[in-house]
Design a protein around this nucleic acid. Structure first.
Lengths: 187, 187
DNA sequence: CACTGTTTGTGACGATTGTCACAGGTTAAA
DNA sequence: TTTAACCTGTGACAATCGTCACAAACAGTG
């Protein structure tokens, strides 16, 4: 909970009153490894602030998992598309280790946003962060070769490389597991 | 201008009063082919609603252009990252044909947002749309081969294929110009 | 410690792609 | 019409990557 407060303060000004208004929209949830925060085919109705542990977002293509994102401590995990449009999610979010998250119920969040501009502002900042993250990630694929993408992560997100297994990482980088193993071995 | 009104109404409710409040933030700008809407290295301080013509977003990597997005009529072109953080843009946006755009000045937009919740809501919806677009585009790269990406565009965005030249399109799909030429010829 | 299941490393081979070089087309201006 | 600049198609060849197969390393369990 202290992490969440720090996170919120890093984004926007927030008074004790704002906090009291926000609180009814929040629930702390503990997930065991492999439990789902969001299942493909269901409508996404919440954001999750990761307190401890981490989770992954993945598509299932022809029976194979393809990871598109990892969310660690102080990240917000959700499906913006599904959240905004009410359409079914086409990917899942699943705990990769035991995970504690603070769930933001979107319905309640919208209610309190109408009453409190600071909460409204918080929501917008979150959106911006998520959009910015997507933009950077998409650019990585267009600008770099598989090896360069790996080196980019080494420099900009070494924590991710340490925590995510090779198998999980390979689809995230868009290469075969074997190729990633060889990229690693030749350095 | 009518296009912009239609676009706004498709996103959120808007009264004549809201429109009057928004108008001071807007300017109509005509760009000739190859003029810049945003230059890499400068801070992005506006959003552009494309009225007619189209433009491209591109990175320059080792002297070569790599296109990351195309914006057509009724699209919003901007750099979310630079807009939100005030950092310099690491890509440019340039008119690919003569282009008319409505410029949303971000400074003025923020001012009127504070006064009018409907404008605030509009801004948030735009953000959502942009984030959603990014998410889909990034997924395309992880889930598909070059040929599949081309076929995906044929199905979901045929207009883009008709208007963008092969050379411009190739970097957008992440393949060499020659490879794209061959993908086209073998169908 | 042995057993089992999972993850990682590696070799061989074929398929795809990038690069280089050049030819044919198209467009626009002189 | 001619010229020049640009875009597109194509062949040859090398580099990279994916796939398949299997061995080695590791983790958890009884």
């Amino acid at each position: 909970m202290e992490n969440l407060l720090r996170y919120i303060h890093s984004l926007t000004g927030f008074s004790p009153g704002n906090w009291r208004a926000l609180e009814p929209a929040l629930t702390t949830i503990v997930f065991s490894k492999d439990e789902y925060l969001l299942q493909a085919g269901k409508v996404c109705d919440a954001l999750f602030f990761v307190s401890s542990g981490y989770c992954r977002a993945f598509y299932n293509k022809d029976g194979q998992d393809i990871n598109t994102a990892f969310f660690f401590e102080n990240d917000i995990a959700t499906n913006i598309n599904s959240l905004a449009t009410g359409e079914k999610s086409d990917f899942s979010i699943q705990a990769s280790e035991p995970l504690t998250a603070i769930r933001f119920d979107i319905k309640k969040l919208r209610e309190v946003s109408l009453l409190d501009p600071a909460i409204e502002a918080l929501g917008r900042k979150c959106l911006q962060q998520i959009a910015a993250k997507q933009e950077k990630h998409a650019a990585m694929f267009k600008l770099m070769s598989p090896q360069e993408r790996y080196e980019f992560l080494e420099e900009h997100d070494p924590g991710l490389l340490q925590r995510v297994s090779l198998t999980q990482l390979s689809s995230y980088l868009g290469v075969a597991r074997e190729t990633l193993s060889r990229i690693r071995s030749r350095r």
